[in-house]
Design a binder for these strands. Structure first.
Lengths: 209, 209, 209, 209
DNA sequence: TATGAATGAGCATTCATTCAT
DNA sequence: CATGAATGAATGCTCATTCAT
């Protein structure tokens, strides 16, 4: 391993360290009330250092989204590529994958939502924006592949698979969203787990031939 | 109509005017990048005037949520109370209602999400917080009533109706969410309409006995 | 006087108040070490208020230059228009005018110099930049008119009058500059007055036929 | 040449390298907007290295001034010592010398001006401050010697020679200054060369008996 | 010597909120 | 009621400087 390589890896580690700290602070204070100083303290770094690794606060936030999308993408790719699984088993695996992703980073949607604002997009490097778009599309596409497989095997109804993927994506987003806003909407504990369970049951039944 | 009443009504109108302006500004700039001055300009009022009608920025935002929840509640109540509709027709009516709500105010979710932050909740009057919670629960409860009716009539599977309501709520939230973040996630136009259509089809099929 | 007019005048007064404070602070601390808070304190205003009247720190500084150029311009116009003065008397009047300007704002050159940097220019509104350019050119042009008059009357040598104006402008700038940097260069008190006196004597002799 | 000497020379080279880079960066961005990192990049060194050769940013800037003053001093001494030149020829030689200096480092005045700020002076080593003062005074003194020679030989008017020197110094400074701020003030290309030419013509005529 | 990552004090700027008119 | 100028605390960000390697 060359020096250059080692440094690159070191840099990646720092970014992770900062993102983890940011995640923690965002989840406690919310994106707006969290200050860069808060994050720096949490990461046990100085405020200036944050700017060595992230162009600005918005970019730090967007990078969190990218990170979770990367994780999601890997999970989905893996499920999709499992040749030995029957379509219905893949749906089950999907459910597990999504639950996994949520556990990895429950903040996913707050961050994703933040990206909507055109004012925020202005602050992001075009590289980052295109990475996020690419990964989002890839994720949905991979899910679509899973459904397509089931349709081919005559197990699932013949809806456009991409549409199915989008519905599942929406369902997932919505469930997470409602879980996030527990204070207002949800009532029972383990809301997420139960609801994902129930939702997939309905969904799986709904798409079966 | 007494003078007092007229004044009250006048006051309500002003609040509406401000909320509409706020909605427009929020949808363009996002909640955080929108300034009270932006909103005042959009409403053709002065910044100071906003504070005659709303305690602070967070409360203005929360009032937007309350407003949409009220609208949603009315729609749902109406669907639920229609004695002549069969369960499946009610589901169809639900779909229409939700589409309606979305058209009325697509920003609902951004606002709802914003309410999550405990830091924001601190700024709200307890009256407002309890109103929002009550309405949210009512909405879900009313949907649950619809499902319960279907279960009693032996048309829907015997899932806990409240769970069904939550799934539908999540589905709706997720769809709207994905539509909002079109720039990042969605690909096709009319994403929302198509996806609601597809989703309800799957959902309806999934809960039928 | 209408309300609008009164407000406009009030606004002008505030700008003056701030500029005067800025001048004082700049002359004590230098442009860079002077903070906006320093200036606000000196003006007995809050930092935020400064930004109601000046886009940013660079623009506040440039406005000081504009102010002195306006003053200079008026002085020069007056000298140039005096029909009864002989060319040599006008040169004498020029000297007085310049001395006057310097007394009005000895900081003129520090500010002018600041304008050189392209990075600074980026921060200025194009209106301001064009105003400054126009006034600078006008000043030199007016001086040229004075020399042209002398050349026509066969009193001054037939150099291009514009070139003469530029030399005088440079002489003035240089004298002020050296006076400013007293700490390093000048030795005697009243350096400025003496040197302007001497310089104009040489200059007047040099351009006489 | 001993090792110590070689090292000393090497050190001098590095200082030159850094000063040249600094000059380039200052002339593009202005002293304040130029960062030490900018200079380090231009010099193809790391920021830390700059501090091995200069105590701080202000001292780096002052060293630039010192460097140009040394160059000027040598030029002036040479002109002054030429026994065979007539006073008028010396004035001509002075003109050439000044043009030379300007070409060597047009930034001289920006740097000199920067030294004015008492806040900056605090940051400089007393050694450096006294060097700069000494050289400045020497330069003016040497010019005065040239004029004194002319006065003795009954060629120049009997003004105090030191005053003449100061006027010339001011003229030079002013011309350079105006050339630097071309964007704002000057109009014609080759402003500097032409104006120095014209100015010396007037000046020479003005001091002749 | 040279590096360049890390620092953290410092500052320009913003903006929710107030209040005299 | 309405205004909008003024506020000033809050904060994102910068950059001269340091120091472990």
């Amino acid at each position: 391993m060359g020096i250059r390589e080692r440094k690159e890896r070191e840099k990646g580690r720092r970014r992770q360290q900062i993102m983890i700290a940011a995640k923690r602070v965002f989840s406690i204070k919310g994106f707006n009330k969290a200050t860069m100083e808060d994050i720096a303290n949490e990461a046990e770094l100085s405020p200036g250092t944050l700017y060595l690794y992230f162009k600005n606060k918005d970019e730090l936030c967007a990078s969190l989204s990218l990170r979770i999308l990367q994780y999601l993408n890997i999970k989905l790719k893996y499920v999709s590529s499992e040749k030995d699984l029957e379509p219905e088993q893949k749906i089950e695996a999907l459910k597990e994958a999504m639950y996994d992703v949520y556990e990895f980073d429950p903040l996913i949607l707050i961050n994703m939502l933040h990206l909507q604002s055109s004012e925020v997009l202005k602050n992001l490097s075009s590289q980052l924006v295109s990475d996020i778009k690419k990964l989002s599309n890839n994720s949905i596409k991979t899910m679509a592949d899973i459904f397509e497989d089931g349709i081919k095997k005559n197990v699932f109804i013949d809806k456009k698979p991409f549409a199915l993927a989008e519905i599942l994506w929406a369902l997932f987003s919505g469930i997470v969203l409602c879980d996030e806003s527990k204070g207002i909407i949800a009532n029972n504990k383990n809301y997420l787990k139960l609801t994902i369970e129930n939702a997939f049951e309905i969904f799986a039944k709904g798409i079966k031939k």
